[in-house]
């Protein structure tokens, strides 16, 4: 069976370029500030640092006196070895360690929310398009646009306020409470779930609309194709046509768009974490910003970007499975 190797290689190439761009951006950014980056950096934060920290910082940034290209190569080498520097705020913990915990929580929250909203949203979109003119189709688009117009973080605040504060249904911050011990025990797991529900609901609320609208529009387009008319003419059951012929085809653009939309969802998820003080990458990003912990900030940018790139790549692999036209070259 052909695997669409050529296509996959193309995609890998693309992601390598994208990764390289992010790494290079990370390199350039501290050097972007006008003037001598080293002293500017230090002048901003020096008041708070001990001499060891200042030295470490200088080393991390390669803010040595070597010429720029040498610094760049060094930086690349560092990154490739997973050395993202040392966090200022959490000195002397290395950035990679700090990020590791945050990553775990963000993955938990993010993966759950994204999967749920993708599935839910596309399902709603399929149904809306299939039953054109029905109540789902009439109500859903304006409703989804409306909900989607709210900034993620504001909806998070609203959910927090209504469900957490007023109704006291769910806890309002952090990933788990004070009275449980960390570990694979049931009370802990349940507590984690309870803490994850509200932020997850927020993310689902905002992002479902996007999938739903997109899928609805795509599906409407697909349903007007000739092969759907043929499927009807062939006397196939409604279910077979809706899922096997229509949704199946409409899924392709949804999968393609998933990668790009993921970038936005990630942004929203990060903001949501902040509102709920959920100890994921978003929250860490905020504290990094507030504490001017530049190494941590940049490390987070890199890790988040890489995660998104990997997710995109996985999605591309799935796409190859779904679309035979990409896998197999047309033979005439």
């Amino acid at each position: 069976m052909e695997l669409g190797v050529k296509y996959i290689f193309q995609r890998i190439g693309f992601y390598l370029v994208a990764a390289w761009v992010s790494v290079t951006l990370n390199f350039i950014l501290p050097r972007l500030m006008p003037g001598d980056p080293a002293s500017l950096l230090l002048s901003r934060i020096s008041g708070r640092l001990r001499p060891e920290q200042i030295d470490a910082l200088k080393k991390v940034y390669g803010l040595t006196n070597s010429p720029l290209p040498v610094q760049y190569i060094q930086y690349l080498k560092q990154v490739l070895h997973g050395n993202l520097g040392i966090s200022i705020y959490n000195f002397p913990t290395p950035v990679s360690e700090v990020i590791a915990t945050g990553l775990m929580w963000t993955l938990l929250l993010g993966l759950t929310a994204v999967v749920i909203s993708f599935v839910l949203g596309n399902l709603i979109g399929v149904i809306a398009a299939w039953r054109r003119g029905g109540w789902v189709d009439s109500v859903m688009p304006p409703l989804m646009i409306f909900i989607g117009s709210f900034p993620y973080f504001w909806l998070a605040m609203l959910c927090l306020f209504v469900f957490g504060f007023e109704l006291k249904l769910f806890p309002i911050s952090h990933a788990f409470g004070m009275n449980v011990t960390v570990g694979f025990n049931l009370p802990f797991l349940i507590d984690v779930v309870r803490h994850t529900i509200l932020p997850a609901i927020t993310i689902v609320l905002v992002s479902t609309g996007g999938w739903a609208l997109g899928m609805r529009n795509t599906m409407i387009g697909v349903l007007s194709e000739d092969y759907i008319t043929m499927a009807d003419a062939k006397g196939l059951s409604n279910r077979r046509i809706m899922f096997g012929y229509a949704a199946r085809n409409a899924l392709l653009p949804a999968v393609t768009g998933f990668g790009i939309a993921l970038g936005y969802v990630v942004g929203g998820a990060l903001l949501t974490e902040i509102v709920f003080s959920y100890p994921g990458l978003g929250f860490q990003l905020l504290t990094a910003v507030q504490n001017l912990d530049y190494p941590l900030m940049q490390g987070l940018l890199l890790v988040i970007t890489l995660a998104v790139l990997i997710a995109n790549f996985i999605v591309d692999l799935i796409y190859v499975r779904l679309d035979p036209r990409v896998r197999i070259q047309a033979r005439e």
Binding site: D226, T229, M230, G235, N249, P324, R325
Partner: peptide
């Protein structure tokens, strides 16, 4: 009735075969 009538009694061939075939199946 239509579902059993279609194709079994009367079938249809379209102008463009490429368009009448589902590209993913």
């Amino acid at each position: 009735e239509l579902a059993s009538f279609r194709w079994r009694e009367v079938s249809l061939v379209f102008q463009s075969a490429m368009n009448s075939l589902n590209p993913l199946i």
